[in-house]
Nucleic acid binder design. Structure first.
Lengths: 204, 204
DNA sequence: TAGTTTTGCTAAACAGTGTTCATTAAATTT
DNA sequence: AAATTTAATGAACACTGTTTAGCAAAACTA
C-alpha cells in the first residue's frame, strides 16, 4: 500500500511546513502579532487548511515551543561537554540558559512567559518538553549536593531557587522591566555579575 | 468660573469611572480577554467614549497597573512597620511581595509580566510607578549591606538578584510553568521554602 | 472504463477585536 | 434667540481566530 504511505508522508510534510513557517513568522514578528492568516499566506494555502493540521493557534504554538526546547536541551547538553565537576556544570548550564534566552528572546518568551503553549496542554497531560530540560538541571544539582559543593539540601528547593532566579532575570529583561534601573546602567553586564554572585552564594 | 471647574471635575470623575471599571473587568477576566467594548458596556457608554479619556488600550491599562503599584507600595511600607533590623526588613518585604503576587495574580501579571503597560511608556519617559517600589527595596538592601548583615557588596547586584529570584518564582507560578515539577509537589510550600533558603543564603 | 466514495482544500461567513471619524445633540456663550 | 463649543456616539475600517458548506481531484470499486 504505497499510496497510504505517500499520503501519510505528505501529511507529515505539510505539518512540518506549517510548523517551520509558524516558527519563522513568529520569531520575526513576535507571538502576539503572528496571525494564522500570515502563516497561511506564506505557505500559499488558505487559513482554514492550517486547522486541518493543528487544532488551534495554541496547539500550533505549543508545537513551535517544543522546537525551542529541542534547541535548549541541545545547548544544555553541549554546555557541560568535557566537564566532570558538578559545580562547574552548574555554572556552565546557568550561562548556557541565559545565553539561549539572549539569543532567542522571542522563543524564550513563548517557552517560559507566554500563556499560549500552556493553554494547549490538557489538564492530565504533563509537560514533557519542560521535563527533559528540568531533569538535566536537577541531575547537575543533585550531584553538586552529593559532592557537598552546594549549600543545598533538597534538590527541589535548589532547582526552584536557581531556575526562578535566572528565569526572573531573563524575563524581566525580555519584558522590559529593567527600565526600573538607572538609565546608564549596563543591564547585560549587571545580569552577568548577578549570575556570578548567585553562583558564589550557593557555593558550599 | 464654576462651570469650568465642574466640567474639569466631571472629566476626572469619568476618567476614574473608566479606570475602576477597567480594573474590575481586567482582574476578573484577565488582561487579554478584557475588551474596550466590555468596559464601555459596564459604564453604559459607547466604546468610542473611552478613547476621549484614554489614548488607547495600552494607556488605559498603564493607568490600571499604576493602581497596582500604589497598593504594592502600601504593603511594602506596612510590611516593615515597627521593624528596625535591616535583615528582618528584607525578609518581611520578600514575603510581602510574594503575598501580593499570590493575592493579586492578575494585577501582578499586568504589572510585571504583560507587555501592555510598557508599550504605553514612551522611550524618554521613566517608569515612576516601578521606581518608587524599587527604591524601597534598594534602601533595605543598602542598609543590610552597610550593617554587614548581607553577603552583598553592590546594591544593584543585590537588587537584581533578589528581585529576579522572587519575580521569577512568582511569574513561573502565575504562568503555569511549575507543571514541570512532580504532580504531587506542594508548589506553594516549596516556594516559601525556597524564599527561606534564599534569605539564608544571603545572610552574612 | 464508468461510477462512486473519499480526501484535501478553500471561499465565505461568524463573531469578535482595537480604533477612527463624521455626525448629532446638548450645554454654553454671545 | 442665534451661534458656538463640547461630549458622546453609530457606523465603519481593518483586523483577528475559527467554522462550515461545498467543490474539485484523487482513489477505490464495479
Amino acid at each position: 500500500m504505497g499510496i497510504l504511505e505517500r499520503k501519510e508522508r505528505n501529511k507529515q510534510e505539510m505539518r512540518l511546513m506549517i510548523l517551520e513557517t509558524a516558527k519563522e513568522v513568529f520569531i520575526r514578528k513576535g507571538f502576539e502579532k503572528t496571525s494564522i492568516r500570515a502563516i497561511a499566506e506564506k505557505i500559499e494555502y488558505s487559513p482554514a487548511t492550517i486547522y486541518l493540521y493543528y487544532k488551534d493557534k495554541n496547539e500550533l504554538f505549543f508545537a513551535v515551543h517544543e522546537l525551542g526546547f529541542d534547541k535548549l536541551l541541545e545547548e544544555m547538553v553541549a554546555a557541560i561537554e568535557g566537564i566532570t565537576d558538578p559545580f562547574e556544570e552548574l555554572r556552565r548550564r546557568g550561562y548556557a540558559y541565559m545565553k539561549f534566552a539572549f539569543e532567542n528572546p522571542e522563543m524564550y518568551d513563548l517557552m517560559f512567559i507566554s500563556n499560549a503553549p500552556m493553554n494547549a496542554l490538557k489538564e492530565e497531560e504533563n509537560w514533557n518538553s519542560g521535563h527533559k530540560c528540568f531533569a538535566l538541571v536537577c541531575e547537575t544539582l543533585q550531584r553538586g549536593i552529593e559532592a557537598k559543593q552546594l549549600k543545598f539540601k533538597e534538590v527541589e528547593i535548589a532547582a526552584m531557587l536557581i531556575w526562578s532566579f535566572i528565569h526572573g532575570m531573563v524575563s524581566l529583561k525580555i519584558r522590559n522591566r529593567f527600565k526600573i534601573f538607572n538609565e546608564q546602567t549596563e543591564i547585560q553586564q549587571l545580569m552577568t555579575a548577578s549570575l556570578e554572585q548567585m553562583i558564589e552564594l550557593v557555593k558550599a
